[in-house]
């Protein structure tokens, strides 16, 4: 509530990390097992980080905690030097496909415009600056000609472009993308990465959770392997060992089956 429409007036603390998680634990209810068992992670401004790990590793949970969709009960999450809950304004999200109602009676432009609402707040209508930001975001994502199309009538790739255009219109500093590559064609995938590269070159920060390990070495500067806690962290080539790959895809790594491995 506090931030809807109000600019986050907390200044970025000099030298502060874009995202800093320390000893983050989480369980959804008191009776259940912990989904996160002490996550420590620091991401600097301008980094492009891939978040990989098996299903149920807590990738989405971690992103939800950063967004304030789940209440942080144990540990600390800082966004640009402030508690995450105080600085939601600087964070934008491209949620998993399933989290969104694609049957909504909305068109592409209406969805992209939602990225501007954080700057407007209650009762204010979008002005010319907002319209320009939306036009530019749609132009960058190559969906200008689809502006009046219903979102349900789009292909998976076009839908994802719409969501990323919304994030561009939002103009946040920390971008969280939850499985943005699912059901997306190759050219859209390239466009997404190209856009992220451009944004991070300008000092924005992107954290992308993905199952698609093939894209890591090409498009990311850093990979974080999460399985309830950070298992491996570093350049993609170092994080992606046969063991972690096997784990990410949910099968056991058996050396016997891979005689070509040392």
């Amino acid at each position: 509530m506090k931030f809807y429409g109000g600019r986050c007036d907390l200044p970025v603390k000099p030298g502060s990390a874009a995202l800093e998680c320390s000893d983050v634990h989480h369980r959804y209810s008191a009776t259940e097992e912990e989904v996160l068992t002490g996550v420590n992670l620091t991401v600097q401004p301008g980094e492009r980080v891939a978040l990989v790990g098996p299903n149920g590793a807590g990738k989405s949970t971690l992103l939800k905690l950063v967004l304030g969709m789940e209440k942080l009960k144990s540990g600390r999450i800082g966004v640009y030097g402030h508690p995450a809950a105080d600085c939601l304004h600087r964070v934008a999200v491209v949620p998993q496909r399933g989290a969104v109602d694609w049957n909504s009676p909305l068109n592409v432009r209406q969805v992209v415009m939602m990225g501007r609402y954080v700057h407007l707040g209650w009762f204010k209508r979008p002005g010319s600056a907002d319209n320009e930001a939306v036009d530019e975001a749609m132009e960058i994502m190559g969906i200008s000609r689809l502006a009046r199309r219903q979102i349900g009538a789009l292909s998976g790739g076009q839908q994802q472009r719409t969501m990323l255009a919304r994030t561009l219109a939002h103009d946040a500093d920390l971008l969280l993308l939850d499985e943005p590559l699912n059901h997306v064609d190759l050219s859209t995938q390239e466009l997404i990465f190209h856009t992220l590269e451009r944004l991070t070159a300008k000092g924005k920060t992107a954290i992308v959770s993905t199952h698609d390990l093939g894209v890591l070495t090409v498009h990311f500067t850093r990979a974080v392997f999460l399985d309830k806690q950070v298992i491996a962290d570093g350049p993609p080539a170092e994080v992606l060992t046969p063991q972690t790959i096997a784990r990410a895809y949910g099968f056991e790594f058996h050396k016997d089956y891979h005689p070509w491995m040392p």
Partner: peptide
Amino acid sequence: LCFKELITASFDPAHAMSIGL
């Protein structure tokens, strides 16, 4: 008056949360 809030929360609750709505 609350049209944009209604469509945002109906379409994408995660985004609504992330903008403080």
